[in-house]
Design a protein around this nucleic acid. Sequence first.
DNA 1: CTCAAGTCAATAACTATTCTTAATACCGTT
DNA 2: AACGGTATTAAGAATAGTTATTGACTTGAG
Lengths: 138, 138
Amino acid sequence: MHSFETTIGRLRSEGFKLTPQRLSVIRYLIGNTSHPTAAVIYKDLKRKYPSLSFSTVYNTLNMLEKIGEVQSLHLFDDFLNYDPGTEAHHHFVCRSCNSIIDIFPRDAENVSLPEGDISGNRIESAQVVFKGMCRNCL
Amino acid sequence: MHSFETTIGRLRSEGFKLTPQRLSVIRYLIGNTSHPTAAVIYKDLKRKYPSLSFSTVYNTLNMLEKIGEVQSLHLFDDFLNYDPGTEAHHHFVCRSCNSIIDIFPRDAENVSLPEGDISGNRIESAQVVFKGMCRNCL
DNA sequence: CTCAAGTCAATAACTATTCTTAATACCGTT
DNA sequence: AACGGTATTAAGAATAGTTATTGACTTGAG
């Protein structure tokens, strides 16, 4: 996700209205590296916006995903996690505490992925998911 | 998934009974590289076993996953795909035809992933998902 | 063959997400 | 500052893939 100003500028230019609900979700996500679920976002924002609806959280997340400001991650069976990261990166999932840790290219010099084609198929994007035990659980 | 004999041997040794339904699912999956969903497996086997139940397909798949004979893949939003591959490999997902293509290490010499630790987290497994256009859709 | 343990089919239940609807709030225009 | 068209909201119903429940049936060890 870009800065607050950049993000709301993009919303505006795409014709979306700036509602307090949307702004609160955006503020919640900027700089958030915890990969929250929709349920967690809803629960946390509900304190400040008691009338907030679940649908609104989902609608906002879907909208932000459509314009590329967040990414949904299918790392677990039953729910999605949302990642406000915009630059390409990978993820580490701890099998003990289930935390999701961003792995940026600068910290992953040993990760090298092909570009262009693989077995005749044209690659447009690639994502790596590591699983194991995180540093805190070790 | 291993050979038919090896797989049913593992079932037997784990204390599972060998029922015609389970054998049919196992036979269906061995050598199958199409990454079928539970729904597709059910539909196909229903012709030969008209009394087959959806639960049985799911139960069998979950059992096979528990003993490591299949792997469930969360590549799409609304359903799981099942992969009888046992050796480590990656996947290519076509955004046009939605097909899932196995990418084995021998075909992916440009893929290199770290082993051991990354940023202090201990890696136990790693999976790459490529997205793009498959050779047939190009 | 017998019988207990395990499995089956049918269907109800579950849960994350999406859809529906009437009421509301945003914002360009006045 | 107020208006009005229209996108958005809140609440709850609906959806769909998967899992759990239940009572009858089957498997396979002894």
